[in-house]
Design a binder for these strands. Structure first.
Lengths: 327, 327
DNA sequence: CTGTTAGCGCATTCAC
DNA sequence: GTGAATGCGCTAACAG
């Protein structure tokens, strides 16, 4: 009587095939080292019992777990969810299991989670936009959208993000752009501010609003101040913030893009789910996720991979148009 | 010289404390079985080396992994992301690690994923809205929003969802409601249809549109047909679909809620991020996630837990209003 | 080519 | 109260 609920072990297969357990192991892992006849018998037996090696035992032996952790501040944030999705796919393709853990934007919680996971994973993908020090005592770490000395990272070229938004809006003949920047501690905020500072003399009418919460409410709440500046276009720090701006504008009775244009960033799914759909700069979330997994993979293989910087692109949808089309 | 990158083992601690490895194990797991003096020495040594038991070794020994998997069709779908978030928190609180895996709405992929995970997790939370047969040969499974004989499940009372939406709209004096139902195979679709059928005689003016894709595009694409029905209110299968309806209505130049009211379902975060913010029926995602983990927990403890059915509630926001306020 | 042995790190028997 | 031995399931090295 064959009990499907109890996993078959090497010994079970060996017994069924009439060989020694180690022969089973070989037949399965190094088929060329074993006589065709026995190999077939073993494989048949393995199939018969639907044998799968116990990854725990394998891991114990190899000192590897076959799992990689991804640390995100908030998995319900579509940005991180998309990142996780991409990473998960890439990890699966490599036979790795991705463990997603939330840090809730909290350093203490992050340490706790890391500690819980430390021994269970071979590597960590850290997506904290703030974290400065690489987690110590942890397995190999790679950073996402955050560059820190000594830690391999995959980032989006934030200066190019600024440049793309600017070009798009200038091409539409906007001459007064309100730039909404994210929280001070964020790496990407710093990068964008630098890019903005570099060209500030060229566009004296622009206005920069700093330290806006990078979410819907942050954008919603900034609408009055944006309107006060008289800007004809807004560039938000990310799509969520842009969506908030869109809603705030609607609540204030302004039309987009007739009265004012709005540009987001990241090209999260929700960006295409507003009305009007959001013009945005892609965060290339798929590529970022994939690259991050590739980096840990390299780390695990003992390489010292170099950083990856991805070039963004602009997706023009319907939230931008030339200014002054207002009735 | 103390190498932080190499994990300390029981033997290391034993050497440092001058005792036998098994004593260390005891001192850590059953402190009362060991003399206070040695216990303290061992604990000091363990702390010194920041020793953490290797979960793989423990798992191998106990036949448990300490991990639970959550199978979702699409982690970038805010509904499942929220569910995962809740489950993750609940699992952490129990010292379990949650592994999130995507099935991409694909049975084959699901089988593959399950096979990869089978040996790595103690239990599985399956969130497929369609899946009928419980995955065989897998660890204990619980279902979310899907009731199948023999599989413990946590569900939202879908009839109540229909009832709440109806009451709300009737209270506003709508007499022609367009009900948008989800895909045929979904458990929740079936439940809602049954609820609708049960009262169809009472509301002859209502109209039911079936088999709508449960996403933004699905809702967007149904707007024309909804408008054709002359309904003054729409109840969408979920929030994403409702958001699509909202956008489609805006694109068609209709105002919400002046011209037509819209109700969503699930109360995903994005539901509060539209303009107008969406009136919706809560999916109690936190509670569902938490309950699902509680169920697997019970299963792991050898219990045969009973199903959990959660009562929804209506969140009135600004996408609903009395009909006929049109200019 | 295949069987034997050893050991990954740990917790649970036993003895003492 | 503590040390010694055993085995979880597996694979790598060594014999034969």
């Amino acid at each position: 009587m064959l009990d499907v609920n109890v996993r078959a072990t090497l010994a079970d297969v060996a017994a069924l095939a009439g060989v020694h357990p180690s022969t089973v192991s070989r037949a399965l892992n190094h088929p060329q080292l074993v006589a065709p006849a026995t190999r077939d018998r073993v494989q048949a037996a393995a199939a018969e019992l639907s044998f799968t090696p116990n990854p725990l035992a394998q891991g114990l032996l190899r000192g590897r777990t076959g799992a990689v952790a991804m640390l995100v501040p908030d998995i319900a944030n579509p940005y991180f969810a998309a990142l996780a999705q991409a990473a998960q796919a890439a990890a699966s393709a490599r036979g790795l299991v991705l463990i997603i853990a939330e840090t809730r934007h909290d350093e203490v919680e992050e340490a706790r989670v890391l500690d819980l996971l430390r021994a269970r994973v071979d590597g960590v993908i850290c997506c904290s936009p703030v974290l400065d020090r690489p987690p110590t005592g942890a397995p190999p770490v790679v950073h996402v959208n955050r560059r820190t000395a000594g830690v391999p990272a995959v980032t989006i070229d934030q200066r190019a993000v600024v440049g793309l938004a600017r070009e798009h809006l200038e091409g539409l003949a906007h001459d007064r752009i309100a730039w909404l920047l994210g929280p001070e501690g964020y790496w990407s905020t710093g990068e964008r501010r630098a890019a903005l500072d570099a060209t500030t003399a060229l566009r004296p009418h622009d206005v920069v609003l700093v330290d806006v919460d990078p979410d819907f409410d942050g954008g919603f709440g900034m609408v009055d101040r944006v309107l006060d500046t008289g800007a004809t276009a807004v560039v938000a720090f990310n799509d969520l913030m842009a969506l908030g701006v869109l809603a705030g504008l609607a609540a204030a009775g302004r039309r987009v893009p007739e009265d004012i244009s709005v540009v987001g960033s990241d090209d999260v799914r929700a960006a295409a789910m507003s009305w009007p759909p959001l013009t945005t700069v892609t965060g290339r979330l798929d590529d970022v996720g994939r690259s991050a997994v590739a980096l840990v993979g390299a780390l695990l293989d003992g390489d010292r991979p170099s950083d990856v910087s991805l070039e963004p692109a602009l997706v023009a949808r319907r939230s931008t148009a030339p200014p002054g089309r207002s009735t």
